[in-house]
Nucleic acid binder design. Structure first.
Lengths: 113, 113
DNA sequence: ACCCTATGCATAGATTGTCTATGGTTGTGC
DNA sequence: GCACAACCATAGACAATCTATGCATAGGGT
């Protein structure tokens, strides 16, 4: 991985889904939202964002429609589908399980079950 | 990513370094150790492990020497170098920073600074 | 009128990391 | 002697991210 990765590989889809669970949003807004809420720790490059959104569309986890922004611009708004909400739950629980596991490996004491 | 990833991409090097920080170990043992301590959540495939060890050797973060196992077998034991220990600290802190950031995005409440 | 910047979408290609598949050697227990 | 676990290692496929590039337009400043 690069020395200064913008995000943890494998977590982008989850982050997008989670962001859309708050409210429908366009791509640019999603990237901004993640950056802001993460206090600038996570940055979503456009070259990662749009391919990810295509994946999510293909899977049926989000749907898209062209609308006008409040700044009067044409933009593609993404909305979480029911399947997407379910998927989000799944990914979050898997992620947390892995985090716990990594935490155990990183921990100082090696406690065997 | 695959539906059931064996580990979080980008974390393997850190896990290996952390494991070697406990004690020098051979490849096979590293994989077993991670699997066991993580309660079988994390699995290190050989096709991931050995390339990773090559990376670490190249960076000078570990060194290797052939020895005999306690089961009387020839095996390559890896030891953490000083640079490797430093690198481990760096990776862990970066990782934890990212975890905190992801946690903020996943959290229900969106609190702006 | 003109330019600059922020807003906004999107793709191609390079790069990196992990997984699958394969192939080999050698102790030990049956 | 045969199977199996312990060990090493690589090649190629695959997936995800990053870099670089291109395009378009609204609004503010001059």
């Amino acid at each position: 991985m690069a020395k200064n990765p913008d995000l943890l590989p494998g977590t982008l889809d989850m982050l997008i889904l989670r962001t859309l669970a708050r409210a429908p949003l366009h791509g640019y807004g999603i990237a901004q939202s993640i950056k802001r809420i993460s206090d600038d720790v996570l940055t979503v490059e456009e070259g990662s964002l749009y391919p990810a959104l295509q994946r999510l569309l293909l899977q049926g986890w989000v749907k898209a429609e062209w609308k006008k922004t409040d700044t009067n611009r044409r933009a593609r708004f993404y909305t979480l589908t029911a399947a997407g909400r379910k998927q989000l739950g799944l990914e979050v629980s898997q992620f947390q399980q892995m985090m716990a596991a990594i935490g155990r490996v990183l921990a100082d004491a090696e406690e065997t079950g």
